[in-house]
Amino acid sequence: MIIIINYEMGNIYSIRNALTYLGGKSSYSDDKDTILSASHIILPGVGSYRKAMGILHDKNLVAVLNEAVYEKHIPLLGICLGMQLLGLSSTEHGFTKGLGFINCAVDRFVDNPLAQTKIPHVGFNNVECNKKNPILLSGLNSSSDFYFTHSYRMEYQDDVCSGYCINGEKFTACAEHGKVFGTQFHPEKSQVNGLKLLINFLNVK
């Protein structure tokens, strides 16, 4: 069973639709035992980083996710804000510590008028594969389009960035570290490219 973390932050409806379309069985949960017995975990998220971390702490989900990652080794995919939460910290609404599974900080796009930075960065943009044997982007073109909508981004770091995107600056669009994965874009809103990426994630054992 694929478990989508239920913490009242985000458009989980469309993620579930995409999983159902692919024939994957999923459900929402904030229950420790259910989450720890999942085949795969998805951490969605739209909204404020600070508020999201607050709810994860309040629901004791930070400890549960740590156990899922470090002891149970359950594949975990963070989407959009969910990906940012996997990082070290964010400066959105003040400095907030993240889950720290991925060794990258999150910050607002640097507004560079010369480079035509778009803030918010909304729409389909191309993600360039940054690894020889990527997992999430496996079987996709080395430059593939995905749908983004965000104003904060995870910094670029070569070792965890499996796909980068450029919006005035290079940032991590797709992260992989062990069985922890993140996409700044929305695979569930990215047509066939996104469906293929979800299949790649669900094929991680």
């Binding site: 379309y21 692919l22 024939g23 994957g24 389909f124 073109n141 593939s144 389009d145 749908y147 990215s190 047509q191 066939v192 490219n193 469906l195 293929k196 299949i199 669900l202």
Partner: peptide, 19 residues
């Protein structure tokens, strides 16, 4: 400059994990 994807693959992905 439109986004690109394999338009025809989408239908085949339905029920991927049920096959």
């Amino acid at each position: 400059q439109l986004a690109k994807w394999d338009k025809h693959a989408g239908k085949n992905l339905e029920g991927y994990f049920l096959k």
